[in-house]
Design a protein around this nucleic acid. Structure first.
Lengths: 190, 190
DNA sequence: GTGGTCATTGACCGCGCGATCAATGTAGAG
DNA sequence: CTCTACATTGATCGCGCGGTCAATGACCAC
């Protein structure tokens, strides 16, 4: 027994990487302590040593997923554009970015729906909240001086992006963000 | 051993009802043969006698869920309305109906994301397909004579409805379909 | 060297799962 | 009444899971 020692973070990263791979390849259910340990080339016990419980491991994995997708909001300098152009640009960037990572997004949804308790949901919920908050300012600007309510527009935009994500997950090969963007451009008030 | 005999369908319905209750109350993971049997007041073996396998039971349960929600499209006679009014009406009806059954819809998403294979996905996918098909005709009418493409509009509408569903699942108490409907009305071309 | 700290191992425990099956009860046909 | 077909039971099997732990190795301070 015993073996080579490695610094905590390096080990944790390796375990998480193994868990990530298994989850991507075979789904959340396949992420068991034994399989992760084997994939990482370590023993079962070490997984619990570093993450306390399976839930601890999954929470950490969810954190990695969120950091790489929902929480990685780009706020490229778009201040010079018209509000409508900024909003359209944001939607385009988000659609393209999240569609690119559709498999990670799929895992996030799998996390969300795998449990009814708050362990994962609260975490995901707060990411979604930040997502809405990121769209809110420009939506308010777009709505200013029109019949549209800013917060209602923001809710609609987020719903549209989420729905588009579902479609991208359902059929990544044929889903095309341009369909949605073209429709948006067509209904844009002059 | 042995016990009172009941006709096949009656038993199956009872088993499915028990499974449905457990799934709604505690999630898909809680649907095990033992628990369903206990809830239905029968023995474990009888579940397998009637449904062959756990997957068989889950497939049947998914069928019940889809029949009650996605597949229950209302095609109330709206032929007299303008295309835009018809579309808006369809969206309103669907939002209100599916939000009412948000817990069943949540279970459908749980089915979808619980597995990566086609066992459940194909079934759900075909229901989503019918959903899109139901929106397509009116979307084509709405798009006729505008810059909008009918099929792109339909894809956008379905994405919007799906995204709204996610929001309704996330927060059933505060979600309000009117936010989205008001925004749609505001962007409607004159 | 020696001692202490901590990462690491892998056997082990108890559990609940899906599934099986011989035994048994029930109902209807003849 | 008997025979047959079938619904029903519950003990049972094997499995993989999450989690634990005493033993052991590696490393560092002195």
């Amino acid at each position: 027994m015993g073996g080579p020692k490695k610094p905590e973070q390096e080990r944790c990263d390796a375990i998480l990487a193994a868990a990530y791979e298994i989850a991507l390849a075979e789904g959340l259910d396949a992420v068991t302590a034994r399989r992760v340990a084997t994939a990482a080339g370590i023993s079962t016990g070490l997984v619990f040593f570093h993450f306390q419980s399976k839930d601890g491991l999954l929470e950490a994995l969810l954190g990695v997923l969120l950091d790489g997708t929902l929480d990685a909001l780009s706020d490229s300098g778009l201040a010079r554009l018209e509000p409508w152009d900024r909003l359209e640009r944001m939607i385009r960037v988000e659609l393209e970015r999240l569609v690119e990572y559709h498999d990670a997004v799929e895992l996030i949804f799998a996390f969300y729906f795998s449990r009814r308790d708050d362990l994962f949901r609260a975490r995901i919920e707060s990411s979604f909240g930040r997502y809405l908050a990121a769209f809110s300012p420009v939506c308010r600007e777009v709505a200013a001086g029109t019949r549209i309510q800013g917060d209602e527009l923001a809710a609609t935009v987020v719903a549209l992006v989420q729905g588009a994500l579902i479609q991208a997950i359902r059929n990544p090969e044929t889903f095309n963000p341009e369909s949605i963007l073209a429709t948006l451009r067509a209904v844009r008030p002059a």
